[in-house]
Simulated scan of single mutants.
Amino acid sequence: MHQLAFGTLLYRYFFFGWLFKDASRGSMLERAAAWRYNKERSHWLLTYMRRWLWCGALLYGLGIVIEMLLQEPALSAIFYIPSALTVSVNAVIGAAWVGFRALPGPF
């Protein structure tokens, strides 16, 4: 069986772009097929949202621990900032999921 490199697996664990096809190129039939393909796989977006939520919560928790126990607010920012960035990633994933559920195809 073909084994993927660790970096590739890590990328695929956090980013979902590899799951979907480009629905903006090709003929109308090709775009419609790509849209249906993407819509069928959109349920995986909720899994990616959960992953980013847990990572954000873990980073936020580490920031709290470092700030409270070690009294190092500057060091805790190393964990607070990526934690805040996970909110925007989840917003993008949520918008994509709602778009696949609510919007008609691009044709």
Rank of each mutant, 00 (worst) to 15 (best):
W97L: 13
G56D: 04
E72T: 05
Y13D: 02
I81P: 06
N38I: 08
V89G: 03
R41C: 00
Y80E: 01
S83R: 13
Y37V: 05
N90R: 14
H43S: 13
G61H: 11
S27C: 04
R25M: 08
S88Q: 14
L4A: 11
W18S: 05
W44I: 00
A23M: 09
L10I: 09
L70Q: 13
Y60I: 00
F16A: 02
S83M: 10
P104Q: 03
V87P: 00
D22T: 02
G17M: 06
V87M: 09
I78Q: 03
C55W: 12
H43D: 11
R12L: 03
I81W: 08
H43E: 10
Y60G: 09
W52I: 03
L46K: 07
P82C: 05
V89Q: 09
W44Q: 08
L53Q: 14
W18C: 04
A84C: 12
E72M: 13
L53W: 14
S76W: 10
A33F: 04
V65E: 01
Q71E: 12
L62E: 12
A5G: 13
V65F: 13
W52Y: 04
V65H: 01
P82A: 02
Y11W: 12
K39L: 05
Q3L: 10
Q71Y: 12
L103A: 13
L85D: 04
G99I: 01
L53K: 04
G26S: 07
W97G: 00
K21I: 02
R51V: 03
A96V: 11
F107S: 12
H2N: 09
P104D: 09
R31P: 06
S42C: 14
A96P: 07
Q3T: 08
G99H: 00
A34H: 03
R36D: 10
G63P: 02
W35C: 07
L59Y: 07
W44V: 06
R51G: 03
F100V: 04
R50H: 14
I93S: 01
V65N: 08
F100Q: 02
F6K: 13
A5D: 14
I78W: 15
F16Q: 05
S88H: 13
G7T: 12
Q71W: 13
W44T: 09
W52D: 01
E72F: 12
A57Q: 09
V89A: 00
H43K: 15
D22F: 02
A32I: 08
R12P: 01
S42F: 00
H43M: 07
F100P: 01
M1H: 10
A32S: 08
F79L: 03
G56Y: 02
L62Y: 14
K21E: 04
L70M: 11
W44C: 08
Y48H: 02
G56E: 00
F14C: 02
L69F: 10
V87D: 01
W97H: 15
W18H: 12
L4R: 15
G56T: 01
Y11C: 01
L9A: 01
S24L: 08
R41Q: 09
N90L: 09
M1V: 11
K39D: 00
I93G: 00
A34K: 05
F15T: 02
E40D: 14
L10G: 05
F107G: 13
L85C: 11
S27W: 06
G7H: 11
E30D: 05
A77G: 12
T47M: 10
